[in-house]
Computed example of a mutant assay.
Amino acid sequence: MIVGIATLLTFQLIGEILAYEIGGLVPGPVLGMALIAIALLTMAKWQRVQSAQSQTIDTSKAILANLGILFVPAGVGIVKHIDVLVAHGLALLALIVVSTVITLAVTVWSFVLAKRIFGGASDE
């Protein structure tokens, strides 16, 4: 598991460095994830790398299986600032509802526009 974590963190560091060098156009973790995917796919044939590859995949599965624990800090933050939530709860609820409706409307509009531009199955 140590090898897997070290591999994941190394690629995240490389991604962060690349993101810094290109001006932050793409987040570092995204670049790191793309690089590790490419590395794992291209190096799968090498016998020496297969052990590290399987350890990295096993570590990734373990992290994903326990992903819920990463949300605990957000829950603690909400509880810590419950007074703000109580004071502005209705405004926050309205904001969430309105932004959700706007997001859905823009998504539908984008889909309809893309369907008109690129064509699609006719409704007839």
Rank of each mutant, 00 (worst) to 15 (best):
Ile102Asp: 02
Gly15Asp: 03
Phe118Lys: 11
Gln55Asp: 11
Gly89Lys: 06
Gly68Pro: 07
Tyr20Glu: 12
Ala65Asn: 10
Ser54Gly: 04
His81Val: 07
Ser122Met: 12
Gln50Tyr: 11
Gly89Thr: 00
Ile78Ser: 02
Leu31Met: 10
Gly89Trp: 05
Ala39Gly: 05
Met1Val: 10
Thr59Asn: 03
Ser60Asn: 09
Val101His: 08
Leu41Asn: 15
Phe71Asn: 06
Val3Tyr: 06
Gly77Ala: 13
Val98Leu: 00
Val84Glu: 13
Ile69Arg: 08
Gln53Leu: 15
Thr10Met: 00
Thr42Ile: 04
Lys80Trp: 10
Ile82Cys: 05
Ser54Glu: 15
Arg116Trp: 02
Thr103Lys: 10
Lys80Thr: 03
Phe71Ala: 09
Gln12Glu: 12
Thr59Tyr: 02
Lys45Val: 12
Ile14Gln: 02
Leu95Met: 15
Gly24Arg: 00
Leu92Ile: 12
Lys115Gly: 04
Ile14His: 02
Leu90Tyr: 11
Pro73Ile: 01
Gln55His: 12
Val72Tyr: 09
Glu124Asp: 11
Ala91His: 12
Leu93Gln: 08
Lys80Phe: 10
Glu16Ser: 01
Ile69Gln: 11
Asp58Leu: 13
Val3Lys: 07
Trp46Gly: 10
Ile17Phe: 02
Phe118Gln: 06
Ala87Thr: 03
Gly75Val: 00
Ile96Glu: 00
Glu124Arg: 09
Asn66Asp: 06
Ala94Asp: 06
Leu64Asn: 06
Ile2Ser: 15
Leu70Phe: 12
Leu113Ser: 04
Ala105Ile: 11
Ala39His: 01
Glu124Gly: 02
Thr107Asn: 08
Gly15Leu: 05
Ala37Glu: 01
Ala44Asp: 12
Ile5Ala: 01
Gln47Lys: 14
Ala34Pro: 07
Ala6Lys: 13
Arg48Asp: 14
Leu41Ile: 15
Ala39Cys: 03
His81Asp: 14
Glu124Trp: 07
Lys80Gly: 01
Ala39Ile: 08
Lys45Pro: 04
Pro73Val: 04
Pro27Arg: 14
Leu93Pro: 07
Gly4Cys: 07
Gly89Ile: 02
Gln53Pro: 03
Leu64Asp: 03
Ile63Val: 08
Ser60Lys: 10
Glu124Phe: 10
Phe111Gly: 05
Ile63Gln: 06
Ala19Thr: 06
Leu90Phe: 13
Val112Trp: 03
